[in-house]
Design a protein around this nucleic acid. Structure first.
Lengths: 158, 158
DNA sequence: TCCTTTCAGTTGTGATATGAAACCTAATAA
DNA sequence: TTATTAGGTTTCATATCACAACTGAAAGGA
């Protein structure tokens, strides 16, 4: 097995690795943040993020390839192209929000702008937490890594 | 303002950017996944991830610098060094789990191994979701991005 | 004691990714 | 018609990366 294949193996065998192969590059998350904040067009991303045009082009292409963004011509202006989140892309919101909350808490030290609020109560969303199947908040002490096959055996034994 | 400063500005103005500056490099997340799974020593990380030794050295150093891992000599064997998660590092668990769950759902298509379970019920943890302050699950349709100052004004007006 | 292995790196070198600026083509606006 | 805008692509210098080989200190064994 070549080194590259071996690497891809490491990435593929775990959800984290698989995810990183798609969205793990430098600018990908920031582009997604932009998309969640309503950016649609190439120039919007470019001026908003200050990213180099070739890199932006490449990253948008990859995100489209992987089905995270959809690329459509703008019917009103045929020069323009719109990039919009797919369901797969929208489903990255928990990742973005966890990352953002962590950054606010441990790095920047303050909530960033804009704030994501509950549309009806106008209150900011809650911090992302890890929960049990029945909804209790769990800390690392309450959890354990278990091999899947062993867990199956436990279940059958019980 | 120089280009580099301008970039740092982009990164700093938002929790996501701030977070990415620290954990956004290629191997950082995988190293953290390893740490969460109990890896402690340089050689463990190296053989487990198949990462190049110089890169591993560099990433561990950065993670230590940023207070995500702590580096201690092993009292039992003075050649060895242990890397362990700090509170700041442990607090990245929601990010790791969201990313993993997304990868399992949309890329690899199946749950990865090992599984994180509730220590007492032995059931896998719940999917990460976005919730309102009072604990309702929110979808993107239920949320809105609001400028922080405007939100303040809304609150005072009410 | 001497020899070997282990651990945690560091160094050298080539490959790859990135960034800034200039250029290109089609579509629109003046 | 000419100028401008949108969305790229190309060029080239620099920065980061991966791989293998090397180092130096500590442990372990004969």
């Amino acid at each position: 097995m070549s080194r590259a294949e071996q690497l891809r193996e490491v990435f593929a065998e775990c959800g984290i690795g698989a995810a990183l192969e798609v969205v793990g590059e430098r600018w990908s998350f920031l582009i997604l943040r932009g998309a969640f904040n309503g950016l649609r067009h190439f120039e919007e991303f470019q001026t908003n993020l200050g990213i180099a045009r070739n890199i932006l082009s490449n990253r948008l292409g990859r995100l489209v390839e992987h089905g995270i963004l959809r690329r459509d011509p703008d019917p009103a202006d045929r020069r323009k192209v719109t990039y919009r989140l797919t369901d797969k892309g929208r489903d990255l919101l928990p990742v973005l929000l966890s990352l953002r909350q962590w950054g606010e808490r441990w790095i920047s030290g303050h909530p960033s702008n804009p704030v994501l609020v509950d549309r009806y109560t106008r209150k900011p969303i809650a911090p992302m937490i890890v929960q049990s199947a029945d909804g209790r908040e769990l800390s690392l002490r309450d959890m354990e890594w278990v091999d899947r096959d062993e867990l199956d055996r436990e279940t059958h034994a019980a």
